[in-house]
Write a protein that binds this DNA or RNA. Structure first.
Lengths: 302, 302
DNA sequence: AACCAAATTTGTCCTAGACAATGTGCGCTT
DNA sequence: AAGCGCACATTGTCTAGGACAAATTTGGTT
């Protein structure tokens, strides 16, 4: 009993592997090979779904599918905790040990402790430094931990949820200026990471801009209509490192054409790192650069 | 120039219509019929994507695809604003006019005004009544407006974003009890609506429970692991009205089997309205019912 | 008017082939 | 030995059309 099986849609949902990929792997590599129901449709047993999840995770850490799918299940487990190299960490202005202790709170599932520690840091550093020297490096480290496989999905969710709260709360506490640049903040469909948007929103608001936060995943058409309705001066998009980078240029180009030419289009986040420059689109590789760009804008529109 | 076209993946992203559906419609109804690139792949021109968006929207309001796809584009426009019936609105304890004025602020793109008005109401009504008599009916009305077609996507996004902020902010201000029920709050993959979760989180926290908010879209396995790691007493899931209701029973059954039997599983939201009852799963149709269930739990575990 | 059965509508799944984009590795040149 | 380019291997996504079950509408009967 309790012999649950998953249909192909459920497996797609739970693993993030598309139906096409699941069928292709079955054809090419001989795994997964699900049972079939009376109607000939695939019924994946729990073990196979679990193994697929491990494989997906290792792929996200850079392993090739071909190798992973040829491996016996036991060998996968050994690969799992690809240990963290010391690596370059001098770039994070906040002491790395302090970041690690924050991450430790998350991994210890101590949400209350994490919130308290973050509030403390915010009070100590002030908003701008807090965002740049605590939240941004911390988010980066969480991403690394994810790649290393040293953090669970639900731990990452807890981190994201609590950090979102903190940032939104802090933004709400800021005085809202009128008359500054009107900046529409959002992301394209498929891009659901919101932390980057909240970070720039905090910094832009500090600089006296009027931010219009529309959350994530706006269809391109809607972004254009929203820009018009809100009389935005600037549309700022965020792309996380997880976003398929080859799609970025096409998306930006399309949106640029949908937007009135008087509206500036800025794109930032780790996802635009290796993106060719596009006419009429400002690519912002870092938070300081974003602040700089806003100041340039203010100077030209004074 | 500016002759943008969308490949099938981009159309799926922007319209929410699956690739399978797009191809099937082309075969069956003769629309959309995209151009083809040199590789034989579909290139949808902007007009067709726009028409598809209108169609999708009308479908969400209850129209049948077959009729819509047979219609000329002009006829679609006439259908668009299916006017709001007076209907049953006595159930909303807050005066309907007041709700409409809040919605008016959103439709007027006055984010600041909306936030101010909501803060005012929160202060006047207190948290519990605010959630039950303002936020819940307001969310419901926004959903209706969406169906009527009287609200834009980006307006709905603005509403959601600002309301999320307000709720999170208010929850953070509540005293966090220790020793109450430990309730893990999340939603399944594909379900990204978070307002319902925030509403119950507010109410549960008021009742002295310790909530663990994990955001939305947790794979079922991860929910089970998170429940264990956080030693949760209760896992509470939210299903919005937009969630495909036929999938709900299977999902709940699967999750029930993955969870330890000592952990209670509650599911709420408009999405569980017409769901058959499942062994070991409590279906909560309304916010008051959720509070009642929590009190029952407290009584049995005292 | 209410109810059940038949017919239609509609989405999702199936197989299997093709190709482009990306990554890998080899050999050549400097 | 290091850098560059080309060929090859890998991998995901697209294509086509067929099949079927679930949901909904239609029509007939009580």
């Amino acid at each position: 009993m309790s012999n649950t099986t998953f249909n192909i849609a459920a497996v797609e949902r739970d693993t993030g592997l598309s139906k096409d990929v699941l069928r292709m792997w079955e054809r090419r590599y001989g795994f997964p090979v699900p049972d079939r129901d009376s109607n000939g449709e695939r019924c994946y047993p729990t073990e196979q779904v679990e193994r697929l999840r491990v494989i997906k995770r290792l792929m996200d850490s850079g392993h090739r599918p071909g190798k992973l799918l040829a491996m016996p299940p036991e060998a996968l487990a050994e690969l799992a905790p690809r240990r963290s190299m010391p690596g370059p960490q001098a770039e994070t202005p906040s002491c790395a040990d302090e970041l690690e202790s924050l991450i430790g709170l998350i991994k210890g599932h101590d949400g209350a402790g994490y919130q308290q520690a973050m509030h403390h840091r915010l009070a100590r550093e002030g908003m701008q430094r807090f965002v740049q020297y605590t939240v941004a490096p911390l988010t980066h480290r969480i991403g690394e931990s994810w790649e290393e496989g040293s953090i669970e999905v639900f731990e990452e969710h807890l981190f994201t949820e609590l950090t979102k709260r903190l940032l939104r709360q802090s933004i709400a506490a800021l005085p809202t200026a009128r008359g500054g640049a009107r900046i529409l903040l959002t992301s394209v469909p498929e891009e659901q990471h919101v932390l980057g948007l909240l970070m720039v929103e905090a910094l832009f608001t500090l600089e006296g801009a009027e931010c219009i936060p529309l959350g994530t995943q706006m269809p391109l058409f809607e972004i254009a209509r929203a820009a018009e309705a809100h009389r935005a001066d600037i549309v700022a998009l965020s792309f996380s490192i997880a976003f398929p980078s080859r799609q970025v240029p096409a998306l930006l180009q399309q949106l640029r054409q949908l937007l009135p030419s008087g509206v500036a289009l800025w794109a930032g986040g780790a996802g635009v790192g290796r993106c060719p420059s596009i006419d009429g689109v400002r690519l912002l590789a870092s938070l300081p650069e974003a602040i700089g760009e806003l100041n340039t804008w203010k100077a030209t529109h004074a």
